[in-house]
Design a protein around this nucleic acid. Structure first.
Lengths: 344, 344
DNA sequence: CCCACTTGCTAATCCGATTTAACAAGCTGG
DNA sequence: CCAGCTTGTTAAATCGGATTAGCAAGTGGG
């Protein structure tokens, strides 16, 4: 890529020692005796020449490339990606590792091909990531390798998983509602996904609902109804419009994600209802839009950054990887969409 | 990372030839004579053993790692990232390359450190990316290397740049308005950034305005006013609210980005004005929100995917990189926010 | 004075490919 | 019949480090 790099041989020559000595001195190893003088000369020569080790060459011998490969289904189409990658990257960087990012678009052939491309480059570990929480069957090339599953679960595949703690998030949503005094007129929009048209609903939706119902029940409240639907903005708009048209008068809406909430906001505004004066709204995900809606949306945040970070940290911890499911908390972003129940 | 890989020596042994022959046969090279029989035996042995070349070892000799490093200021906080990375990654993949993704967070020290980490891994080329179009001063480590600037400009730094064609987008915005019959009551929200509080405005804002004003003028129309402000949703809301409060009655709003448009939508709705019945809105960027606003927002799309793709393609083209500015078109996403001018 | 130890350092090998140099066997033409 | 050319193949060097094995010089005890 450009002019010749300084090699360790150059450093050794300048310091007047053998490359063995240079290698040990530079590595700071003490299991071979080197005089302080020689060590100092090597370090100084390296400094002066601007020596940088060739990681590629090194890894040929050491079998460690200080490199991690991440394979995901999609890195776009979802706001998930950026933060996951950043978390992963920062964690990697803290231990002098770098990240290969790849995307297979859900195509198994592409997945295999990418895993191969990564293995050909001798990555130290692989992260298999999904952009929404779901069950996956990792490509066979991944078996027996050092793998962490990010935002997905693969029963029978011996690897740790890192996923958001959706059940607890559901509980927290219920707690937030109860704390504001809501016990009646609570509707869940996008809940239960018996026939999941929206794949996100399979795990996230069901677990959120589970936690929600559990704590509402314990708190002496209950859901007045559950609307099953897809998770897009238009779905939220359509379903809430329909709900109101049927004469229902919800006091609180638990929207299973922020896009649904945005649709709900639109429908409520069109019906002349105010948030949170007439209807409180609590949501999940904390996409960008949540903070700029008016009123700003109270929501349980998907811990993207933390997920990416933890996945990398696991691969970087020494020792074998245990097939444990790590659940990362989804913090409550308290904003302005929850109020006391409307009276009357 | 796991059990011993099959090496070329294994293949050669199984095929009963030297590793030299195996190497040439596998590389499909014809500049050394190999009998068809031997060639076939090597290929077959490789196939049977599931041989995969060790790219790390290869690159030690060939000096090419088939790897590209991308250094960006931020990959999060902006919807820009996902598509850029995807475009870059796909282009890389088409030529058997892989991408290192890194983020420096705008910190020069981190930038240098990351560039070093990439160079230590012998990347074939580097992409220096910004998440909004602006002038940059690349770290000195990048001088003399194979570099492409992505979404940024660095006068005096000998490298090609890939940026969106903002001026033409401004022109297209004007054309869209003119085509719908707008010649009066046109306001630009977020235009001109004399003292750019919003760094995005420095290039994108000014160029968009330039193209806009140019074509409006040619079309016999003109801007009734330009509102200077930051580029967030609250800014759009506040400024448009203020505009209306001052008694202005705009027929068309050119919002310099989608967040401003969203804020404008909120303000217009609060004032009881409909889009596009009372006021047409045209915007720039095409973030996710643009398509789910009601009515859906007509906007000029930032060609993130194409930018990423082109940057990688440039690095992968043989020969030296020329310091040319490549301007990628911003396609008009026609949706529902432009209508005929309100009469009266 | 000799042997055993320590100290400090280096020669040689290895990692897994690519590439250069060279060589054996067969064939051809004078 | 031999020099010279093809043809097919391989030994050896190379890339830039890490690692193993070993060696020379100095020290100390008996």
């Amino acid at each position: 890529m450009s002019e010749r790099r300084i090699t360790m041989a150059d450093v050794a020559r300048k310091a007047g020692v053998s490359s063995t000595t240079a290698s040990f001195a530079l590595a700071g190893r003490t299991d071979m005796r080197i005089s302080d003088a020689a060590r100092a000369r090597v370090l100084e020569a390296a400094e002066e020449l601007g020596y940088r080790p060739n990681v590629t060459a090194r890894s040929l011998r050491t079998k460690s490339t200080q490199t991690i490969g991440l394979v995901s289904d999609r890195i776009t189409t979802t706001p998930f990606a950026g933060d996951v990658i950043r978390g992963a990257m920062e964690a990697a960087r803290e231990q002098d590792n770098l990240l290969f990012i790849t995307e297979a678009g859900g195509d198994p052939a592409a997945e295999s091909s990418l895993v191969h491309a990564l293995l050909d480059r001798q990555v130290d570990a692989l992260i298999y990531a999904s952009m929404f929480t779901r069950y996956v069957t990792p490509p066979k090339e991944l078996f027996g390798r050092r793998v962490v599953l990010l935002n997905c679960l693969a029963p029978g595949f011996a690897a740790p998983s890192v996923v958001p703690d959706e059940v607890e998030a559901g509980r927290d949503a219920a707690r937030a509602l109860l704390a504001a005094g809501h016990t009646e007129g609570i509707w869940a929009i996008g809940g239960h996904q018996a026939l999941p048209a929206t794949p996100e609903g399979i795990i996230a939706g069901n677990e959120r609902m589970r936690g929600l119902e559990e704590v509402l029940r314990e708190g002496g409240a209950r859901l007045e109804g559950v609307v099953e639907c897809d998770w897009g903005t238009p779905d939220g708009h359509r379903e809430v419009t329909a709900l109101l048209a049927q004469g229902h008068r919800p006091r609180a809406l638990v929207c299973l994600n922020d896009r649904l909430s945005f649709g709900a906001y639109q429908a409520l505004a069109e019906a002349g209802l105010s948030v949170p004066g007439d209807v409180s709204v609590i949501s999940f995900d904390d996409q960008d839009i949540a903070s700029v809606l008016r009123p700003a949306l109270t929501t349980l945040r998907l811990p993207h950054y933390q997920l990416g970070r933890l996945a990398v940290e696991l691969t970087l911890r020494g020792g074998p990887l245990e097939a444990v499911v790590h659940r990362v908390p989804m913090p409550l972003q308290e904003r302005a969409s929850i109020g006391a129940p409307a009276t009357g």
